[in-house]
Amino acid sequence: MPKIIKRVAVLTSGGDSPGMNAAIRSVVRTCAFHKIQCIGIYRGYQGMIEGDFIEMGPRSVHNIINKGGTILKSARSKEFMTVEGRKKAYAELIKAEIDGFVVIGGDGSFTGAQIFNKEFKFPVMGIPGTIDNDIFGTSHTLGYDTALNTVIECIDKIRDTASSHNRLFFVEVMGRDAGHIALNAGIGAGAEEILIPEEDLGLERLVESLRKSKAAGKSSSIVVIAEGDKIGKNVFELKDYVEANLPEYEVRVSVLGHMQRGGSPSCFDRVLASRLGVKAVESLLEGKSNFMVGMLNDKVTLTPLLQAIKGETLIDRELLRVSEIMSV
């Protein structure tokens, strides 16, 4: 018989992403709608271990749907990676009479939830919150759309300078293991080349492509690089190589860094967060557990946490072809 859910906790874990606050708001208000209590856990799993809890109601989440970051704070907990740490967390949840929790985060956060569920049979649900969009079982993760718009805005401004001074700019964006941001933002911003971890362009081919661009009359160029691309040890080494082989180019590097994570979430991310939060709470109330809520074909779906963690997200081959055609 499924456990009766009367008190649901919510936490954010791992790197922050725009839309996390909107998801917290959705979880809290869905609990209020169904007349159950909601508990906020500060500082992710570390806060769970330390019992850093607060009761939350509809008014405690007013005016946060438009804010980036997370009001519950986020942290990575090494202690939660140990059996002893998870036992402490379980004891705190039981003491607070919490019946299940919703974790908003990425694959590392989901791994912790999945192990916790396996050890203690404790009801858990996951909401994908990461700008990298690298979680299996959903077409979009919270913050991805906002991050894309932020990157596009930055590249548009960089292009003004590139055109004014006839420069080549290497723009590094986030994406340690996945090139979704680089590929989509590169196409959207009209980049001449896009370098992603999934595709090895190679140094010689990059130089040849830039040489052709110069011969075709392009006086300035933008190359978007995912931070996980393996073409060079880092973007600055790549800059030195291109300058040595193409002295006619004046090369500059811009690393966008953490500005991609911040800022007010887009309308898409706010609506997505609201839909996923409702589904997460109502799934717990229906007796479901150990799932991630996601979006596929504009429908809210459930994917087993283990599958979400281990499943491989593939780069869109059609977009790769589009980027090749657009770079002519």
Score class of each variant (00 low, 15 high):
292 M>K: 05
203 L>Y: 00
35 K>Y: 03
30 T>L: 09
265 P>D: 02
79 E>A: 11
205 R>G: 04
7 R>M: 10
34 H>P: 04
53 F>V: 08
96 A>D: 10
318 E>T: 15
328 V>M: 13
316 D>G: 06
34 H>E: 14
237 E>P: 04
63 N>L: 12
4 I>T: 14
181 I>T: 13
324 E>S: 12
166 N>D: 12
96 A>V: 05
303 T>N: 08
326 M>V: 11
78 K>P: 03
260 Q>I: 07
304 P>M: 11
23 A>F: 00
101 F>W: 14
202 G>Q: 11
141 T>F: 03
43 R>Q: 15
87 K>H: 13
248 E>M: 14
148 L>F: 02
295 M>W: 00
130 T>V: 13
122 F>I: 08
226 A>S: 15
260 Q>N: 07
265 P>C: 07
253 V>H: 06
108 G>P: 04
261 R>F: 01
278 V>T: 15
129 G>Q: 12
168 L>M: 07
229 D>H: 09
287 G>C: 12
178 A>D: 04
270 R>G: 00
111 T>W: 00
272 L>T: 00
15 G>M: 00
320 L>F: 01
50 E>S: 05
285 L>G: 02
221 S>N: 09
86 R>Y: 00
135 I>R: 07
124 V>H: 04
89 A>I: 11
134 D>H: 10
135 I>D: 09
257 G>E: 12
68 G>L: 06
230 K>C: 12
127 I>H: 11
292 M>N: 10
325 I>L: 14
150 T>H: 01
163 S>N: 15
15 G>L: 00
15 G>W: 00
96 A>M: 12
235 V>F: 02
246 L>F: 04
121 K>G: 09
283 S>D: 15
13 S>G: 02
204 E>R: 04
147 A>F: 01
218 K>S: 10
288 K>A: 12
255 V>A: 10
191 A>M: 13
78 K>T: 12
224 V>L: 12
244 A>S: 15
210 L>M: 08
191 A>L: 13
75 A>W: 02
308 A>F: 02
280 A>F: 02
190 G>A: 12
76 R>D: 07
193 E>L: 13
201 L>T: 14
56 M>W: 01
37 Q>T: 14
236 F>M: 09
114 Q>V: 08
255 V>S: 06
125 M>N: 11
99 D>Q: 08
20 M>R: 09
104 I>A: 08
150 T>A: 03
42 Y>L: 14
46 Q>I: 08
68 G>I: 03
207 V>N: 06
99 D>R: 04
162 A>G: 03
310 K>H: 09
209 S>T: 15
140 H>K: 14
189 A>C: 15
7 R>Y: 04
296 L>Y: 01
213 S>R: 15
112 G>Q: 09
213 S>T: 14
58 P>H: 09
209 S>M: 13
160 D>M: 08
97 E>P: 04
166 N>M: 09
309 I>N: 09
91 A>H: 06
316 D>V: 06
100 G>L: 10
119 E>A: 06
189 A>W: 00
